[in-house]
C-alpha cells in the first residue's frame, strides 16, 4: 500500500488526498455527506473475462448505498445489459463541468451534490478531473474508490492490489446491506 501517484510523474500539488485505509474509513466519509453521485467510467467493464469485473461491485455498491450512478462513455451499455439503470449518462468532462457549478441541481433536480465518487476512468483522466474539481469548487468532497491513489481527490485509497480492493469493496457492501 502506498499513497503515491500510481503514474509516477503525475505528482499532485502541495496538498494531497487523505488516505482511506479501510472500508470503515471509506463508509464514514461517504456517510458524512447528504447528496452523493458516483461517476463510473469504461474501465469498470474491462478486466479478465474469467474474473468478476469492477462494474459488478459498483452495481452492488450503488444498490446497497442508494448512491445514484452517472455512466460515462459507453459504460451505460454494460449497465443496461446487467439490468441496472444508471441515473444518467454523459461524457466525463461534462459531468465534472457540472459538479463544479454549485448552482447545478443535479441529475434529479433536487440540489447540488456534496460528495462525488469517481471510479473506472483511465487513471490520468480521473487525476485531471479531480484536479479541475479541486481547483474550482470548495463545496464538493472528492472521493476515489479505485485501487490507485489519486492525489487530487479529497480522499483516496492508496495503491492496493486487486484482491485487497475487492475485499474492501465487499466489506463496504456488506456493511451497507446491514
Amino acid at each position: 500500500m502506498s499513497a503515491e501517484p500510481w503514474q509516477r510523474a503525475m505528482m499532485g500539488g502541495t496538498r494531497r488526498a487523505k488516505v482511506l485505509t479501510s472500508s470503515d474509513d471509506a463508509l464514514k466519509i461517504i456517510n458524512s455527506a447528504k447528496r452523493h453521485l458516483l461517476v463510473v467510467g469504461h474501465k469498470s467493464v474491462e478486466g479478465d473475462e474469467e474474473k468478476e469485473k469492477p462494474i459488478s461491485y459498483i452495481i452492488r455498491f450503488s444498490k446497497a448505498s442508494n448512491i445514484p450512478i452517472l455512466a460515462t462513455a459507453h459504460t451505460i451499455l454494460e449497465f443496461n445489459n446487467r439490468n441496472f439503470t444508471p441515473s444518467g449518462s454523459m461524457p466525463a468532462v461534462d459531468i465534472a463541468n457540472r459538479l463544479r457549478d454549485h448552482s447545478w441541481l443535479g441529475l434529479d433536480g433536487k440540489g447540488p451534490y456534496d460528495l462525488a465518487i469517481i471510479m473506472g476512468l483511465p487513471y490520468h483522466m480521473e487525476w485531471l478531473l479531480f484536479a479541475g474539481l479541486k481547483h474550482s469548487t470548495k463545496d464538493l468532497v472528492r472521493v476515489s474508490l479505485d485501487r490507485f491513489y489519486q492525489p487530487h481527490a479529497t480522499w483516496s485509497f492508496p495503491n492496493i492490489s486487486l484482491k485487497k480492493w475487492q475485499e474492501t469493496l465487499d466489506d463496504m457492501i456488506s456493511q451497507l446491506e446491514g
Binding site: 500539488g13 502541495t14 465534472a96 463541468n97 478531473l129 479541475g132 481547483h135
Partner: peptide, 19 residues
C-alpha cells in the same frame, strides 16, 4: 473554459515556486 491543472504550481519566475 474548464481548467484541469496538470500542475498546481507556477515555477516560471524566481518569486516562485508559487502554489
Amino acid at each position: 473554459p474548464f481548467y484541469m491543472p496538470l500542475c498546481d504550481l507556477c515555477c516560471l519566475c524566481t518569486m516562485g515556486k508559487c502554489d
